[in-house]
Structure formats: C-alpha cells, structure tokens
C-alpha cells in the first residue's frame, strides 16, 4: 500500500531524527530526479546495521545486538534438537538466515516501519515517526498472530483482565526484555527477571477467601497460573511448511510442561511437522526428540474461569487435558510424555 511509504511532512520539522536528511541513513541520491536514479544504492532498512542507530543510541544498540529479538536464536534453539549435525548446518544456511532472521533484525522494524509478515508489509507506522512505544503496532506487528489478539480478546473469548484494566505489553515486559540486558541468552526461558505473575501477585496462599487460599496452596508448584486462569481457547498452528505456511484453529490444551515434565500448564501446538523444511531440502532425523507442544503463557487471563469455578472441570471432566486421542496426528513420539493422568479428588480429604 502506497500510504506505507508516505512521510508525514509535519514530523520533519519537529523530530531531530530528520535533521541530518534522508540520505544520512538511507543513502541513495536525493538529487536523482527520477525514482530509479534517486533510489540507486538505497538502503531500505538502515537500522539493519545497528551502527546506524548506535551513533546516537549507543548503549541500546550494544545490548540489542545480543538480545533475543535481534539474534532470534530462541527460534533456532527451539528446533535444533530435531536435526542431525549435518542437517543443522543445512538449516542454518538455508532456513535460519533466510527466513527466521529476515524480519527480526532491525530497530526500525519495531520503531519505524512494520517488517513484512507473510510478504505483506504495512509500511511506516505513523508517517515515519520514530515511535517509542505503541504496543498495538510496535509489538503486534510480529506478535499479532497469537499473543496480542488473544490478549485483547480479538481472537475470541473475553479480553485478558490485565488488558481490561488498561495494561499493555510494556507494563509487564520491561525495556530490557525488548532491547536485551547485554547478556547473550539462548532462549527467553533463560532471561533473568523475566515477567512473572508473582511479581505483582506476591501473596498467593494468604487470601481471605478459604477456597482461593486452598486452591493456591494445593496447586503451588504443580500447576502454573495459566493452567487455571487462562480463560479461553487460543491459537494453535498446524502443519507448517516453508513454502506454503501453516493453518490455524483455536484450542485449549493442558499437559505437562515439556521443560520439566512435572508441572501442569497450558500448551501450544508447534506447527513444525516432519517435512516442514522439505522445500529447502532439510530433513529432521531426530524429529521425535522434541514434542510438538511447548508450554505457553496464554495471554487471556481471567480471575474466574471454568477451572477456578469448579475442581471437577479438571479432576473429573478432564476438560482440555491432553490424551492419546487428542494428540496431533502423525506427531512426535515425545508427545505422549506430556499427557498427565489427573486424579479425582478423594472425597474424605
């Protein structure tokens, strides 16, 4: 859409980013006259080179270069065990660099212009304004397939209670979560001081209401907060292929956390299938070494859900719990290890 390339002329006079002129960042030739000659040697995404922004924002550029948003190493880490050493090398060359890293690399991808997702780019955020924070855009450009619409209720169900109370992404996720803290992490699980429900809800098990206190005390360390407080179905993606993409439908899944195999939590289906990277000629000899589900912090939290209202939802009806029958077809053999056989509550206890 052409509007994605329109610069708001009112910004030019106000914003110091424009003081040095377009060519300072974008190169090209502002005296070129015609489009082709003006765009010769144009740098479309100047902030792909972190030094561009780092000239002024040096500290942020330094930490950002090591951040998960920039390295996208978490995506590689999540799938690498499925490959043999030779396959992993092929994956790195043919898929990771070409695909995974293509949209996650630049400062401008969040603060100036939406990265193209699925070939569709929305263009400049606000007429080339350097947007510091506008979660509906700066975050939702990339996280708008699953997390963001689940949070706002646009994916179905009710909005997350935190959203209804006026909280947005940056109220829980700190600036250092976006820009990195200078450490090199392999996964978001490793990040120090990452958001946790208990950062605010620190007095669990001390509630005045007896049933609430009992529920929090009994489930502590056994069930995650999401396990009970995720309120609705969330997006599950299926059958992803490098050339054709994936399909999606809503679902609510409870099972053991694949990272510890003992905590019951909300799970999200990973759309990687045995031939996901066939298009690039990359096989996955060790596909079964990882399950098709990862633990997910479902962002549709409510105080009251079917599971907080009645113990029977899980302990008798087993609603949403993974079973052999509900596992994804032709999935990994590791999936069975996530099934949790929940026990009924003994009546006399």
């Amino acid at each position: 859409m052409y509007k994605g390339y329109l610069v708001d002329k009112n910004l030019v006079a106000k914003d110091p980013h424009f003081a040095t002129g377009c060519m300072f960042c974008h190169k090209g030739n502002e005296n070129g006259g015609a489009k082709e000659s003006a765009h010769k040697d144009l740098v479309k995404r100047p902030s792909d080179n972190l030094k561009t922004c780092g000239m002024c924002h040096r500290q942020i550029a330094d930490t950002y270069g090591k951040s998960l948003h920039y390295t996208t190493i978490g995506q590689r880490q999540g799938v690498m065990k499925r490959f043999s050493p030779t396959e992993l090398k092929q994956f790195d060359e043919k898929v990771f660099q070409q695909s995974c890293r293509s949209c996650h690399a630049s400062c401008g991808g969040c603060h100036v212009k939406a990265p193209p997702v699925g070939g569709i780019g929305l263009g400049l955020i606000q007429g080339h304004k350097f947007v510091k924070k506008d979660e509906g855009k700066t975050c939702a450009f990339c996280h708008g397939g699953r997390v963001y619409p689940e949070y706002t209720g646009e994916y179905g169900g009710k909005p997350d209670v935190h959203y209804q109370k006026g909280m947005l992404c940056m109220d829980c996720h700190k600036k250092s979560d976006m820009h990195g803290d200078g450490s090199t992490y392999l996964s978001k699980q490793d990040v120090k001081d990452r958001p946790a429900c208990t950062n605010c809800h620190s007095k669990l098990g001390q509630e005045a209401k007896l049933t609430t206190r009992a529920a929090h005390t009994r489930h502590k360390g056994k069930v995650t907060c999401y396990g009970c407080h995720a309120s609705a179905e969330y997006r599950q993606c299926y059958n992803c292929h490098l050339d054709t993409g994936s399909t999606a439908k809503p679902g609510f899944l409870l099972g053991l956390n694949p990272r510890d195999r003992k905590t019951l939590t909300t799970l999200r289906l990973i759309p990687t299938v045995r031939d996901s990277f066939k298009h690039a000629g990359v096989a996955m000899s060790n596909f079964d070494s990882l399950p098709n589900y990862w633990d997910t912090p479902a962002h549709n939290i409510r105080k009251r859900t079917d599971r907080t209202r009645s113990c029977d939802t899980c302990h008798t009806d087993k609603t949403g719990l993974l079973t052999r029958e509900t596992l994804v077809e032709k999935g990994s053999k590791a999936n069975e290890g996530l099934i949790y056989n929940i026990k009924p509550i003994p009546i006399n206890k």
């Binding site: 106000k14 424009f18 502002e30």
Partner: peptide, 16 residues
C-alpha cells in the same frame, strides 16, 4: 532540522 529537511531534501517532495 526543519531548515535542512525542507530546504535541501528532494526525497520529501515525493514521499510527502
């Protein structure tokens, strides 16, 4: 910034 951008920048002729 306004002086430089408005006075010398031909990119903005099209892009605005």
């Amino acid at each position: 910034s306004s002086t430089i951008a408005a006075g010398k920048n031909n990119c903005l002729v099209c892009h605005t």
